[in-house]
Amino acid sequence: MSRAVGDSEAAAPDARPGPVAPERRGRPRSAAADTAIIEAVLRLIENGASIGELSMEGIAREAGVGKATVYRRWPGKSALMLDVMRSLDTPSPPPAGLSVRDDLILLLEFLRRRGLAKRNSALLRTVVSHVQAQPELWAEYHETVVRARHEALLAVLRRGMANGEIRTDHDVETVADLFVGPMLARAILHEWKELPDGLAEEIVDMVLEGVRPEPAG
């Protein structure tokens, strides 16, 4: 199981493109064109086209731009689909930094909602499945999107270790797995299991009970 926060893909089922990933060097800067092209991909998929049936030419026609405009931004369909997936991605809320427990619940609740959104969105499942099947794209998605979420979780855990709320005799990465593992198992490995309200709180409280330092003496 990956140790990264956010392995379960999701956004609101009816989500639409937000900011597109930072532009690659040499690519013309035009947010309007980026959005039009990504919207065109989403429309085509929603209208029943499989990703295998999509072509860069057809996407350009749907977006109302020239084929060269698409190719200047993305070298091929797989790279474009990575940005389509990023456009459906909901940013993780930043931890408030006031309570380790509350911050952990915030991060796990984000995973729970992403898992629910993926289950409810055929569009998102289609896009995610395509990117997951491309190892280089999936690695890039983890490097540019998932890593930041994982680092946010590690920062909360390190704060808890520093202030005495979490024991320090275990590797912080392993402790992170203890928190996110149960949520990811339900969201990804056992998709028939429910993701009910209160699950994040239940997991956090259960794990915190086990990783609290022993009382002195």
Rank of each mutant, 00 (worst) to 15 (best):
W192C: 13
G26D: 01
G164M: 01
A117D: 12
I59S: 15
V204H: 01
E191N: 05
P135D: 01
M85R: 05
R43H: 03
E151H: 11
E201G: 08
L157A: 05
R43E: 11
P28C: 06
L98Y: 15
L189P: 00
M56P: 07
P93D: 13
L54R: 08
A216P: 00
R16V: 12
A12K: 14
D7A: 05
G6S: 03
F110Q: 08
E214K: 12
R149S: 02
G64E: 13
L111E: 11
Y141Q: 05
L42M: 09
P213D: 10
A33N: 14
T168V: 06
L107H: 07
F110D: 15
P213N: 10
L44V: 02
H190S: 07
T69K: 13
Q132D: 07
G76W: 04
E201D: 13
G6V: 05
A216Q: 13
M81R: 03
A36M: 08
R43Y: 00
G64H: 12
G160A: 09
D205F: 09
V65W: 05
S92F: 11
G210F: 04
V145C: 02
G58L: 08
S30Q: 08
A12P: 05
G217Y: 09
A68H: 14
L107R: 10
A31W: 07
G66K: 14
V100K: 00
V175G: 04
R86E: 05
L123S: 08
M161C: 07
M206P: 00
L106R: 15
Q132T: 01
G18M: 08
N47P: 00
Y71F: 11
E57Y: 05
V5H: 02
W138A: 13
A49S: 13
V84C: 13
I203G: 10
A4F: 09
L116R: 06
L157G: 04
L54Y: 03
A79L: 04
A63N: 12
M1S: 09
S99A: 14
H190T: 02
P75H: 07
R167E: 01
T126S: 08
G6R: 06
V180A: 04
G66N: 11
V41C: 10
H142N: 12
H150D: 05
E23Y: 10
P93W: 12
A162D: 10
R167L: 02
A122M: 06
R112N: 02
L137G: 08
R86I: 15
L44N: 04
D171E: 12
M56R: 12
R125L: 03
D171F: 00
R24A: 11
P135W: 08
L137V: 00
A216R: 14
G26K: 06
I37D: 04
G198F: 04
V131N: 07
S8W: 02
L98I: 11
P91I: 14
G198R: 06
T168Y: 12
P93A: 13
S8G: 11
M161T: 00
K77C: 02
Y71G: 03
G164P: 03
D102N: 14
A32G: 10
L154I: 15
P94V: 15
D169W: 03
A185R: 01
H142C: 15
P13V: 11
V146T: 15
K118P: 00
D34L: 11
K77I: 03
D205L: 14
R73G: 03
L107F: 05
I51Y: 01
A148I: 00
W74R: 08
M56C: 06
